[in-house]
Design a protein around this nucleic acid. Structure first.
Lengths: 166, 166
DNA sequence: AGTGAAAGTACAGCTGA
DNA sequence: TCAGCTGTACTTTCACT
């Protein structure tokens, strides 16, 4: 794993910025135990190396009027690579589709969607997704309640793993 | 929808911070077309009102050694509220489970999991999830490739909607 | 607008291969 | 010795009143 190219301070930086991405550099430096300038240099390096893909404010979807969250399992008629990528390209265009993952097993894709209300999701479902070329089966499941939604990765798992390898 | 309590500048602020959460306040102010001090006041207000739940660095899970991503559909034997919340509490404890959503339909929960490799996920699956009390059926699907993974909500959809209501 | 703090730069010293 | 990282000193920019 490439995480071995990172020293413990780098991993601490990533963990801290994942938890609070708007922390000042001096606060971050204090937490990871070095002074501010090298800390900033490490952050820049981590950004350029792609370990940090970006920073995002986590907004409350419900408060903003996106009351509905739906998972859609999509099966395609043809799984030829060109057909797969055509479907993927369409998913990237649909703003209500926030995530799209290609899966193994009976279902080809899982889509995580948001919508202001049920009726606008239904409109998307019938007018866009179901009428999309090559789409075979679609099974949708409404999210009744959200239990856990942690962004990113569990850094404690990573640390345990590296400790055992040493 | 409570988004009507927000004016267009507030929504622009949220959209910009969702796209780049580490932007400086002056840069943000410039983009939304007001001067820095009122912009900062708006951001603080949005944070305190809960529209902004936090800021996070988006880290590259693969680069950090989390090679495997899995969706698990879980059916419980009892759907009594106390049994549901007991399972939810367990999900919150498992670090490999990043998301847990309660669904309608045949399956009770969908779990989004990450793991360093297949074998450590299998260990989690057999030693933790499958042996957990009240767990009936578990169907897992490996993510073959990620197609789209946009955090947050589509602000353009929100703007279109508000425009039509007016 | 003005003050105090943080970001970012330049440079010099330290440490390990 | 030399590369790489660190910390101090300093300027510029930003946060906040």
């Amino acid at each position: 794993m490439s995480a071995t190219r990172l020293d413990p301070i780098d991993r601490k930086i990533l963990a801290e910025l994942q938890a609070d991405g708007r922390m000042t550099n001096v606060e971050l430096a204090k937490r990871v135990g070095i002074s501010a300038p090298p800390c900033l240099r490490r952050v820049r390096t981590l950004e350029e190396a792609g370990y940090i893909r970006g920073y995002h404010a986590e907004v409350d979807a419900r408060e903003l009027g996106f009351e509905v969250q739906v998972f859609a399992m999509v099966g395609l008629q043809s799984q030829a690579e060109s057909d797969l990528s055509a479907f993927e390209a369409r998913c990237r265009e649909w703003p209500l589709v926030r995530e799209c993952h290609m899966l193994n097993g009976e279902v080809d894709f899982i889509l995580k969607c948001v919508a202001p209300d049920l009726s606008s999701f239904q409109t998307f479902l019938t007018a866009e997704l179901l009428t999309s070329p090559n789409v075979g089966s679609v099974k949708t499941s409404l999210v009744i309640r959200g239990t856990k939604d942690e962004p990113g990765v569990p850094f404690d798992v990573l640390e345990n793993r590296l400790r055992q390898q040493a």
